[in-house]
């Protein structure tokens, strides 16, 4: 395979490029192991799934696992489309709040000067180091006090206050936004909101695209176990997990479910990453 280096820099040797490509290929093959395994297993007929000695790759691929999954989904008490709708609502609202609130706060915490800024920045950093299982109970009590139990908000609102994305955003804003740009916009009479939206956010596109993929992954996996009780409010991963938990007879379906659950974030990830690349290729900075 002929591979060219994208940006031919002045300080590169061809030999080094080849060594690096070999290293990358080996690392990628090792990393891709689970993908290959799940894809291959999803197409295995029942007898191959329990073959001894086990086979890593499928021999006689079949679509039976997927047709079984479709039948099982069609038989669910709450229509599967409702689970899907719940997931879409949770993911979209969760993403919107997470990115908008997080970016607004990150912008201020990175580029403004005001009393209490250092305190908030320090608290955000410290909060990343506190083990989350022990805060689950206080959070449940808070959600119940706010009347969010058994509503979408109980799942969505806590993710809006997540610190990881904000911390990421702030680091990018510190580095990628030159203060002179903001100053120039202020001299031109732009409001802070305009500066945030039209100057700052386009400059850190790779950052919020990365934040988006992380938040998406989290929200897509949400099952809402301890918040959503009504069956018609539960998201798709919950329904699929129930189908997969149907015992050994559903081993094939389990892999089909895993593949379905994996495919969505992968598609989002690929689209997302090409956008990261595009931003820089057209270089919106200059």
């Amino acid at each position: 395979m002929k591979i060219q280096i994208c940006r031919k820099r002045l300080s590169r040797s061809t030999g080094g490029d080849m060594v690096i490509l070999t290293m990358l290929a080996a690392g990628a093959a090792f990393s891709a192991l689970p993908l290959v395994f799940v894809i291959s297993s999803a197409f295995k007929p029942m007898n191959e799934l329990f073959l001894f000695p086990p086979q890593f790759l499928v021999r006689n691929p079949t679509l039976k696992n997927f047709s079984d999954l479709l039948i099982l989904m069609g038989k669910s008490w709450v229509p599967i489309s409702r689970y899907l709708l719940n997931s879409v609502i949770i993911v979209l609202l969760g993403l919107a709040g997470n990115i908008i609130f997080g970016s607004l706060a990150a912008y201020v915490l990175s580029k403004h000067k005001f009393p209490g800024k250092k305190l908030v920045n320090d608290m955000i950093l410290l909060s990343l180091m506190f083990a989350s299982p022990v805060v689950a109970i206080p959070n449940y009590l808070t959600l119940s006090y706010l009347g969010f139990i058994n509503t979408y908000w109980g799942v969505i609102v806590p993710t809006w206050g997540s610190t990881l994305g904000l911390y990421l955003m702030r680091n990018f804003m510190d580095t990628m936004i030159p203060d002179t740009y903001l100053e120039a916009a202020r001299l031109d009479g732009a409001t802070e909101l305009q500066i945030f939206w039209k100057v700052a956010m386009p400059l850190v596109k790779p950052a919020w695209l990365t934040m988006l993929i992380l938040a998406f992954q989290h929200l897509w996996g949400v099952t809402g176990d301890n918040v959503l009780y009504a069956e018609q409010l539960k998201p798709l991963p919950y329904a699929l997990r129930q189908i997969a938990a149907g015992g050994i007879g559903r081993a094939g379906v389990t892999y089909a479910v895993a593949l379905v659950m994996m495919t969505v974030p992968i598609v989002v990830f690929v689209v997302n990453q090409t956008k990261v690349v595009q931003t820089m290729a057209t270089s919106g900075i200059d």
């Binding site: 607004l104 201020v108 908030v120 206050g161 802070e192």
Partner: peptide
């Protein structure tokens, strides 16, 4: 700007 996030 900070308020929505900070409250949460």
């Amino acid at each position: 700007f900070l308020a929505p996030f900070l409250i949460l």
